[in-house]
Write a protein that binds this DNA or RNA. Structure first.
Lengths: 233, 233
DNA sequence: ATAACAAGAAACAAAACAGTAACAAATAGT
DNA sequence: ACTATTTGTTACTGTTTTGTTTCTTGTTAT
């Protein structure tokens, strides 16, 4: 899903420059010359980030920023030619996430925007764990690999959740046992985990005999590896 | 719980100004004039945010930022007198979360720091011990040398952890025994430690017959030496 | 220098462990 | 009640780890 940048700025040159830069990087761009129109667009369209000039005719950028922050969770970058510290400060105090002074370098804008967007999705979807091509949605209890949904049984999912909650850290079979089955007579616990790990691997690993996600740490337990994602979804 | 700001900056005036400002707002402050010392503090102390000068003697701020971002989740604000766009950009590209140019307004620094901390409320509990090219991640239970992961057995790791927790100090074989095996009949304990130290060295030392990391203190025990890092990762 | 002792090295067997498969019991859907 | 799926149990195999022993090398103190 492409992310959308909303540019609110009355200087058409700046708008077209920014639009060009962001579209070139694969973003969708919306723009508006006034705060009023911008607000309407923000409310009706799917917007992921707002770039907002301080100097606007009518309602100014600071007021709009304030309004945005009161009503929604949405990153805002303020833009200003005024070089006074006061503006930076009032902008940030009103909740702006970043502040860039004109004239700006377009690479800097891109990077700062990217920075904010990187962080944004983790905020509301805190319960999504990803590693490599694997996506584990702990809220919806759904697991997918490269987009295709994997059907896990309750116990399989429960084990995967336990591992995902300690992503990249080793989880002993004792911990898995207590997380998945609650208190349980420990006899056979080790075996149980072994067998179910195998069943889980059969479903989530491309080649279960050469596991990539669930790795064994000899004598210590299992670890769901944190992998950087390949560029496929 | 008070949040801790780490300031890495070689100009003592700036350090004391920032320290004053942040402490006044209720933060705890740690500081260091060099990247090396700063890194050690970040690894061993609970730090929530780093303010990092670009110009530092020895290893510079950009390199340290890079290293931090590779190993932990921790917001970084770069600080620089250089006003060139290139610096801003390379700082942000290396993963810095924000960038402030000197001279700065102290309110602005506070607000930007507050912004980052708001977003990253959970403290990443990375307990990292480094010496030379060795990295021992006590949280993830993972050891790497120059970036490559070393596979240690439970006992090997347990010994290394014991030594790492007393970095640069001598640990007797009695202490190793009780840390690794718990209470144990002491017969053969000395031999056990000897053999397993050897096994450990075989894996972590480049040349096990010429150990660099784990040194023997004759008649007293072993010591994991604290080495300054080569600039290789 | 040399005895006394600590540490390094190598080899071996026992124990612990992970992976695998097959099968029985429990559970849910029809 | 019957079938399919899920879950628990047991058994087997090959591998890795670990404790023990023995021998060699190196260090310290007399």
């Amino acid at each position: 899903m492409r992310q959308t940048i909303m540019i609110i700025e009355d200087d058409p040159h700046i708008v077209s420059l920014l639009a060009y830069v962001f579209e070139d990087e694969g973003y969708s761009v919306l723009s508006s010359a006034t705060a009023e129109e911008g607000w309407d667009l923000i409310c009706t369209q799917q917007v992921d980030l707002v770039i907002l000039d301080i100097n606007l005719p009518g309602i100014d950028g600071l007021q709009l920023c304030n309004r945005i922050k009161e009503h929604m969770v949405l990153p805002v970058i303020m833009l200003s030619s005024r070089d006074k510290d006061d503006d930076v400060i009032s902008g940030l105090e009103l909740g702006a996430d970043d502040y860039i002074k004109k004239p700006f370098n377009h690479r800097e804008v891109l990077l700062r925007a990217g920075n904010l967007l990187k962080r944004a999705p983790e905020r509301d979807e805190t319960l999504l764990v990803t590693t490599g091509d694997l996506m584990i949605d702990l809220t919806k209890e759904r697991v997918s690999r490269s987009g295709t949904v994997l059907e896990l049984t309750p116990i399989e999912f429960s084990i995967l959740r336990t591992l995902a909650e300690s992503l990249d850290r080793i989880v002993s079979w004792q911990v898995i046992c207590s997380e998945v089955w609650g208190s349980r007579d420990w006899e056979g616990g080790h075996e149980l985990v072994k067998v179910n790990i195998r069943r889980l691997r059969k479903k989530i690993e491309l080649d279960p005999s050469e596991p990539v996600y669930i790795m064994n740490a000899w004598g210590r337990g299992y670890r769901l590896l944190k992998l950087e994602y390949a560029d496929s979804l």
